[in-house]
Amino acid sequence: MKPNSIIYLITGFVLCLPAVCYAQLERERVVTSTPVEDTFWATKNVGISTTINPSGNDLHSSVLHTFGLVDGGIDRFFGLDDGANTRLGLIYGITDRVSIGLGRMTFRKVVDVSTKMNLLRQTTDGSVPLSIALKGATGISTLSGLGLEFSDRLSYFTSLMIAKKFNGFSVQLSPMYSHFNRTLGQAQEDLLGLGVLLNVELNEQFSLSGEYLPVFGDRNPGTEDAMAIALNINTGGHVFQIFFASSQWHNEQFVMANNRDRFWEGDFRFGFNIHRVFGLGGR
């Protein structure tokens, strides 16, 4: 066959291609880059906030409990007879990146309002390598009979949360600052800390996580750095966190200001958190 003949045949074949290709639609993805899922499994690990925010128009509810020290033995039923510090919380996702929250805990009857904003969210395609969130909160002690002015009851907290997930292993660093309008004795009005959080996914249903919160600079006398380890259970509808923690307090500024127990010396307590998300999208 002459070269020209080959050229004509190839030309004919190429001209046929559009008709062949046209037979079926070309598959194209609409969503090509998505945020990395479940860097941590809830908006709080045990006591420290994570970069996780509820999606827009979702309502996240949580119930947090911590009991007495387990070293009370069977007589104190390992701390469960010592009463719980319970915090009930709601967080509403205004958008996928911005939320507002409301909570109330037993100790000092503190009501807190908060907001969290995701400045960056790590993506699956690596175009955004890590997640960064900013949180601000105000706590108001509603204990009666103390003769306190309203401003004396206020405390403030802010934290920058920087997290990254690597194939089922997540780490977060959370530099944080808190301020109490009024303190007693030698207590510090201002506290600085660094939350260090880890999460290791065992499978889709279970993960192990831990947190450590050293306080830097001047700290309240007798206080210790807080620590906790937790088993996270994702049932599909809920996330349960069963943990041992040194601090019985819940909000970070109170953990930094009040924890007096050393985890590594056996001074820890049992606790569990329950997280549930409700979609308010009307479906």
Binding site: V30, V31, D38, P54, S55, N57, D58, G279, G281, R283
Partner: peptide, 18 residues
């Protein structure tokens, strides 16, 4: 011939979607 990118499905609940 029809197709859909499954990640565009939205149930109104972010966690449920994930």
């Amino acid at each position: 011939d029809f197709y859909i990118d499954l990640q565009t499905l939205d149930t109104g609940n972010g966690k449920r979607d994930r």
